[in-house]
């Protein structure tokens, strides 16, 4: 009996030591898989918005992801104004309107192609489609293109930094 309770105590003591060790190792393992600081620090890109032409889709790069920049033509803008869901997604810099989005399909992350003839985007992976302002026009994508955090800085746009315009988009559920 006495033996047993001593062994029981030793078992519990070991269990406690091992438990602390196991939790510690799991924390270390989890953190080892986190993105490195250098990866996180390289997360800013500045775009000079004056170089874009109306109706021409340009792909930029931010955090390894493609960024679609589409300066809206008068026709696109007129279309967008008809629908509050469209107009609220556009970024206004120096009086012009731009669609600035992460160019990854919100379904599973393929890069949709811009179809000039139809002024929309088509994802080849599972057939999703997006409008010229980045909203979904055909499923499976669950929502419009995500808009990267940005800050308007005169005629420039800094991606990766949170400005008031982006914050309000986020607060209003325009983007994630």
């Amino acid at each position: 009996m006495k033996e047993n309770s001593r062994r029981g105590f030793m078992g519990k003591a070991f269990g406690a030591v091992a438990g602390v060790g196991a939790i510690g190792s799991l924390v270390a393992m989890k953190k080892t898989w986190d993105p490195l600081p250098s990866v996180k620090a390289a997360g800013f890109t500045t775009l000079d918005m004056s170089i874009y032409q109306e109706g021409v889709m340009v792909t930029e790069k931010w955090r390894g992801k493609p960024i679609f920049v589409l300066k809206q033509t008068a026709e696109m803008l007129a279309n967008a104004k008809k629908n509050p869901k469209d107009i609220e997604r556009l970024v206004e810099v120096d009086g012009s309107h731009y669609m600035v989005c992460i160019g990854l399909c919100t379904h599973l992350g393929c890069i949709p192609a811009f179809r000039e003839a139809k002024n929309d985007f088509k994802c080849a992976c599972h057939g999703g489609e997006f409008t010229a302002s980045g909203n979904v026009q055909k499923v499976p994508p669950p929502r419009g293109f995500d808009i990267p955090p940005f800050k308007i800085d005169g005629g420039k746009l800094v991606l990766g930094e949170v400005g008031p315009e982006w914050q309000s988009m986020k607060d209003n559920g325009v983007t994630l």
């Binding site: 898989w33 986190d34 993105p35 490195l36 990866v39 997360g43 955090r63 390894g64 992801k65």
Partner: peptide
Amino acid sequence: WIRGDYVPAQA
């Protein structure tokens, strides 16, 4: 976390 980056890369 799974990727160790925003996109598949070295990590």
